[in-house]
């Protein structure tokens, strides 16, 4: 870049604005710097916003209690605290599952969340049905769909027994991706 002032005769006033070539460079520089600065500044913004989409949330094996708490032939509510819980979660960190014991040491652990749209299903021992309060979905005792809008049976958790305790693989809100 040459000094444009040398071209200007000394006895004439300077032109009202710098020549366009330099202005163009300045504009490009400005846009470039803003772009770089903006990109750096948006790393934490975008990063924060989409972390939940990219992060692989880990389940963990969670102790639901001794297997004696879930007697054979019954379906009982098991409760646990979400292993991914954050300090601000309060009571929403508490979670529930339906545990059905149908043979000695044989279990089915169902999500309480209806397979239709996630409302909490309730177990009725007498009619051996799970009923959903939202849109009337009904499931049989083994979790298969009996009637109503649910497209499938109840979601199930993986389970195992260790030292006489019933453990389930949990941590995420049950949904279509979670099927045993």
């Amino acid at each position: 870049m040459s000094c444009d002032c040398s071209n200007t005769p000394s006895n004439q006033p300077p032109p009202p604005s710098p020549p366009s070539a330099r202005r163009g460079v300045m504009l490009k520089l400005g846009i470039g710097l803003m772009g770089i600065g903006g990109a750096i500044a948006s790393i934490p913004l975008v990063g924060y916003a989409i972390t939940p989409a990219l992060k692989k949330y880990k389940n963990s094996w969670i102790d639901l209690g001794g297997i004696a708490d879930f007697p054979e032939g019954e379906t009982r509510l098991g409760k646990f605290t979400n292993p991914n819980a954050a300090p601000t979660d309060g009571e929403s960190a508490e979670q529930a599952v339906w545990v059905r014991s149908f043979k000695p040491a044989q279990f089915q652990v169902f999500a309480v969340n209806c397979a239709h749209l996630g409302c909490p299903v309730k177990w009725f021992q007498q009619s051996k049905l799970f009923m959903c309060p939202c849109h009337g979905g009904v499931y049989y005792e083994d979790g298969t769909r009996a009637s109503g809008p649910p497209p499938r049976g109840l979601f199930e958790y993986k389970w195992k027994i260790e030292n006489g305790r019933l453990l389930i693989d949990a941590g995420r809100l049950p949904g279509l991706e979670q099927t045993v």
Binding site: P52, A53, D89
Partner: peptide
């Protein structure tokens, strides 16, 4: 929960959308 379940039905990225909406893998403080 209903909103999350609806998101879940989106093919391929449903689960990701759901997590973005909830701010994590379940409904809580976030």
């Amino acid at each position: 929960g209903i909103g999350a379940a609806i998101m879940d039905r989106v093919p391929v990225i449903g689960n990701q959308l759901r997590n973005v909406m909830l701010g994590g893998p379940y409904i809580g403080g976030a």
